[in-house]
């Protein structure tokens, strides 16, 4: 049939064009980078195979951490207001309630040992540089002690539900000290001007990042920002794969809240169109039989 030949030519031409200006052009503009690495096995300062002691960890945390960090779940409430804390430290120190759950164990241990190398911020805080990272390195501690702290933090971290409310808890603990999310009515807990002084830039609002960056990009980016954006002020935060998935799920729930509706309506509308096309075909056959 002649018409099928014409259609085939059209499909080939349009398909080639589409391939060139979409998948191909994007692969040229955004080359693939190393995949996300949730083992954080570039960090080797602490022997994480050691089994931690929760009791001892509690003692160590109370002696070393709560001067700056709140741990709401353990009864250590935040003493300063967000504004004062930000003014004192540059950025609000996180409440450690969820840290045992959201951070990868290996990352967390190595972070305590040396925050700057774990977060890959050596370009901002070179050793002996003028500016110091607000949290000191605990590289004088024994590996066992660090693992005790980790074990304690893991033991107190509350579980969260597998839904939007749970995802929000993880998002807030992981991102909300620096990033606002206007569409969820969340402001960064560190005031904007303090942040700008601290980081050099104001971190972007994350309301639409699920659309502008997409899941694929976020997956690699959050895991290790320097890989895709060398020199960025954003630290490697060290989320476990599960926590990162929860963060991205939350970004989708806020930034693309109609996704489920779109996909179900889509099937109905396409189904209707198929029926319309079939009926139109039968009608056309009937009408054209009389003229051919």
């Amino acid at each position: 049939m002649k018409e099928f030949k014409i259609l085939a030519v059209l499909v080939v031409l349009v398909g080639a064009l589409y391939y060139g200006i979409e998948p191909y052009a994007h692969s040229v503009m955004h080359p693939e980078v190393a995949p996300a690495n949730f083992a954080f096995d570039d960090l080797k300062n602490v022997d994480t195979s050691l089994k931690g002691n929760v009791e001892n960890g509690k003692v160590l945390v109370e002696a070393n951490c709560i001067a700056c960090h709140a741990i709401e779940t353990a009864g250590h409430l935040q003493i300063m207001s967000n504004v004062d804390a930000a003014a004192a430290y540059g950025v609000n120190p996180p409440d450690l309630t969820h840290s045992g759950r959201i951070y990868d164990k290996n990352f967390l241990a190595n972070f305590i040992f040396n925050p700057v190398t774990a977060m890959k911020l050596e370009h901002k805080y070179p050793e002996g540089g003028a500016k110091a990272f607000p949290m000191p390195a605990y590289n004088w501690m024994q590996a066992q002690e660090i693992m005790d702290i980790v074990a304690y933090l893991q033991s107190i971290a509350p579980k969260v539900t597998e839904d939007k409310a749970g995802h929000e808890v993880t998002y807030k603990a992981a991102c909300a000290r620096c990033h606002s999310m206007q569409y969820a009515k969340l402001d960064a807990t560190t005031p904007g001007d303090t942040l700008k002084t601290y980081l050099g830039v104001t971190p972007p609002d994350l309301s639409q990042h699920i659309k502008s960056r997409g899941e694929h990009y976020l997956h690699t980016f959050i895991n290790d920002p320097q890989v895709l954006l060398a020199g960025t002020a954003m630290p490697r935060v060290g989320l476990s794969e599960k926590a990162q998935e929860e963060v991205i799920a939350y970004m989708e729930e806020i930034g693309d809240s109609k996704k489920a509706e779109r996909e179900s309506v889509g099937l109905w509308v396409m189904g209707y169109s198929v029926i319309f096309a079939l009926l139109a075909y039968l009608w056309k056959r009937k009408i054209w039989k009389k003229v051919h």
Binding site: R262, A280, W288
Partner: peptide, 27 residues
């Protein structure tokens, strides 16, 4: 007569169009 054929072509086109609208709109 002419529109009978066009409606059929339109129907096929709309299936394609709505696929793009709901599932493949990034372009």
């Amino acid at each position: 007569v002419f529109l009978a054929k066009d409606f059929f072509v339109l129907g096929v086109f709309l299936v394609f169009f709505f696929y793009l609208v709901f599932f493949h709109y990034g372009f």
